[in-house]
Design a protein around this nucleic acid. Sequence first.
DNA 1: TTGTAGGCGTTATCAA
DNA 2: TTGATAACGCCTACAA
Lengths: 342, 342
Amino acid sequence: MGPARQRPNARAATLEDVARLAGVSIATASKALNGRAHVSAATRTIVLEAAERLSYSPNALAQGLLAGRTGIVGLLTSDLEGRLSIPILMGAEDAFGAGRTSVLLCDARGDSIREVHHLQTLLSRRVDGLIVVGARPDPRPSIGRNLPVPVVYAYAPSDDPADLSLVSDNVSAGRMAIEHLVQVGRRRIAHISGDATYGAAQDRATGALAELSARSLDLAGGRVFFGSWSEAWGRSATRMLLAQAPEVDAVFAGSDQIARGVIDALHEAGLDVPGDVAVIGFDNWEIFTTSSRPPLSSIDMNLETLGRVAAERLSAAVDGAAGSGVEALPCRLVPRESTTSA
Amino acid sequence: MGPARQRPNARAATLEDVARLAGVSIATASKALNGRAHVSAATRTIVLEAAERLSYSPNALAQGLLAGRTGIVGLLTSDLEGRLSIPILMGAEDAFGAGRTSVLLCDARGDSIREVHHLQTLLSRRVDGLIVVGARPDPRPSIGRNLPVPVVYAYAPSDDPADLSLVSDNVSAGRMAIEHLVQVGRRRIAHISGDATYGAAQDRATGALAELSARSLDLAGGRVFFGSWSEAWGRSATRMLLAQAPEVDAVFAGSDQIARGVIDALHEAGLDVPGDVAVIGFDNWEIFTTSSRPPLSSIDMNLETLGRVAAERLSAAVDGAAGSGVEALPCRLVPRESTTSA
DNA sequence: TTGTAGGCGTTATCAA
DNA sequence: TTGATAACGCCTACAA
């Protein structure tokens, strides 16, 4: 019955342990610890000391059972690399406020069976909300209506318009890229992008073409060079481009990897970046942008913001009607030396 | 009282709802759903149908409260990019068996205050175990003894020998790299690595030197080129190397990024890879190994295995004494074209 | 100011 | 075979 000392792997102390050590009832201990009124200062002090001695930390399970909310949100992803999920997760953590809400991360690895399985596990754990992150920025199957928790899709929108989806505004990002290149004095701008079946690739191209057209400029090379999201494609497309439009003075690449291939090929052709040709990438993936020669300007999709807004929408949905439809969030241009003014 | 249809955001059904719909007691419904004996086949069918109709899924909180275990493990990381945590997380998920155990991911972002905070949150949520993933492969501060749950450190070991740590066997990985290069016919091998303050860099170099010495070979360039974990360092170190030891026929790079810089500089010097010089990297980071020209041989740290073993050790620790000390797990060599036999 | 008691959803024990 | 009941740890009306 003496004061319990910490022992290796001691079982966690309960409120009852604290109350007993403090010589008060469980109810009083609870009030004291939660800062409720109707507790004398002396009693409060005694209880707090007892809790301290026992390293008491309240059992969040029991609290959750009672409160009807767990303070946990599920993050269901298919993003093997984690390069999408992690920033989104961090944004969500920030928005919820560290400690108040935790994130349960489940990777379905592109397997819909596993996804359903994870979904059921998350629902069983009574998460307060769900963020679904797709692997590519195109509509993906909804995980279902009538779920007992609010759901927000991030990066990849749901194919059900009744769901709420948050995506990057790729159209305006395309405009942004062109606008920037024009501002640094370029006029003969080409666009080398990735897989044409990606909606994001189409959207970026649409935005870029719209902005060019608004400025009465033509696309260098006469067409968008769609291919694959690889460095190799960036190289070979650039060779084709140089053959068709040797006067090109800027390239808007659909990804940072493509941009690296573009720069590579430009160097091989004896051209200087940005002296002869300015290059801007997409994704702002640091390992590419900073190791590139010269450092690569790029467009950041603000994934942290996506996560933050997802968290806000979930919080809003808990107490009120959930939104629906697709919400496009702005991207951000990060200028570096590859597009320095000539 | 009629059968409840699913409604948008309907509250989750409880066991009591199922029992009522099936016309049995809560106890019977529980037994039927859990496949326990002493339930008639007819009753079981009725209960299962009721559960199905209500999309019943048991409240894991209530189960956990009773069972004294939550089926959740915490993953505490400082790995901003997620390139360590995600593979480790996936390995752990696999080992636990999907669905039986979920992983709560917390990123401390290198901030020890935040780390303590996350730790308390995780303990409060009564996780069954904790995996701590450091950002760099050197001893890191222990999160403390006498914790009420078992802890395994992965990638970065704890500085307290009483803790259990799982790390990659960098020494034997260094031997492995040299052995491979020798097997493809190389004799004049150099080692360009990263920051010398990293224990892993030292270990890999130690292993490499030991293997060279065992084969009576000298290190090309006469010393290990320590620098930084960057492509730029790979390039400049290679230039120095070529000036000092133009006869070099292989380079063991301390990371894939360094290896890319090495290959770059070799190409600039008019040398062929692997024709003139073979190059092997470290980390087996796919975006680098496959986009490299030629595709880069590399050493994989088997992070999934690290996660899997961490999960196994945690499971073992739950029912029995936890281990302690540092356990080194083998790496794996992935050959590609950059070290094809000459 | 303090303590008693009920309930959150589930499982297990024991009686019917 | 079934069902009432007691936990698990916590919070909160309400009673003392």
